[in-house]
């Protein structure tokens, strides 16, 4: 993409006149469109189905829902040829390094869908062996709620990925998709963040060791209050 290198980086808040016909920005936006169009309509999913959600993912690939309509005809069981990782199901600490390794093996650009409550937050499994949300291990683009989510939810999540791709800019690619070699095989979140996301949050009234120290009612979440 030598062409892109010659284009001056886009300035935030640039005037719309610069996007007119014949300007460099016009050219890149057309290339953006073309590349993004081809990318988003030929996403190859890497199905990582571990548990119940994996069955719903299979249902989404099977006849009734037919994910192939969205350009996901070919399931890529090799991470090296995949574009979007669908992590469907529970992830344990024993499996976490494998998940991280699969993510590291995927080539850029790559996206990740965390399907189901267990993958997104740990779900009902607030226990010794379960990762409390795969976003502590790898970055996630779309979370799908549900236990398990219906196939329509997964299709919607993949459509959101497509929407995200549609908005990507190629000249930002090198910045947004840069990978730090030192981050390979390391958890995505630091200790503080893991502690903050994996505290008991109300689904575990019978079981947590610090119950009572954390308020779980709606009032404690400031965003829920109408001023």
């Amino acid at each position: 993409m030598g062409l892109i290198d010659k284009v001056p980086p886009r300035v935030v808040g640039e005037s719309p006149a610069l996007l007119g016909e014949g300007t460099p920005a016009f050219l890149t936006s057309k290339i953006d469109f073309l590349v993004n169009w081809s990318r988003r309509n030929s996403l190859w999913p890497m199905p990582l189905g571990t548990a119940c959600c994996g069955i719903e993912m299979m249902a989404a690939f099977a006849s009734d829902f037919d994910l192939a309509r969205f350009g996901m005809e070919r399931m890529s069981f090799s991470p090296r040829q995949a574009d979007v990782l669908i992590c469907a199901g529970r992830v344990t600490y024993k499996f976490a390094p494998v998940l991280r390794r699969i993510w590291d093996q995927m080539t850029q650009p790559k996206w990740c869908v965390s399907m189901g409550a267990c993958a997104s937050t740990g779900g009902v499994f607030d226990v010794y062996s379960m990762v409390q949300g795969i976003d502590t291990v790898i970055p996630v683009d779309v979370y799908v709620p549900g236990c398990p989510p219906r196939p329509e939810s997964l299709i919607y999540a993949l459509m959101m990925i497509q929407e995200k791709i549609r908005q990507e800019k190629l000249d930002q690619h090198a910045i947004l998709r840069a990978e730090d070699p030192a981050a390979v095989a390391k958890p995505r979140a630091d200790a503080e963040e893991i502690a903050s996301v994996s505290g008991p949050f109300g689904n575990s009234t019978q079981q947590n060791r610090v119950s009572g120290s954390v308020r779980t009612d709606a009032i404690s979440r400031p965003g829920d209050r109408i001023p």
Binding site: T50, A51, G89, R90, T92, K94, F95, V98, V124, F125, V127, Y128, S129, M130, Q206, Q207
Partner: peptide
């Protein structure tokens, strides 16, 4: 095996019979 060990049996000890 054990890559999907979700400790159901331990969790069951913290749930009531119907849960």
């Amino acid at each position: 095996i054990g890559y999907l060990h979700s400790s159901f049996e331990k969790l069951g000890e913290y749930r009531t019979w119907n849960q």
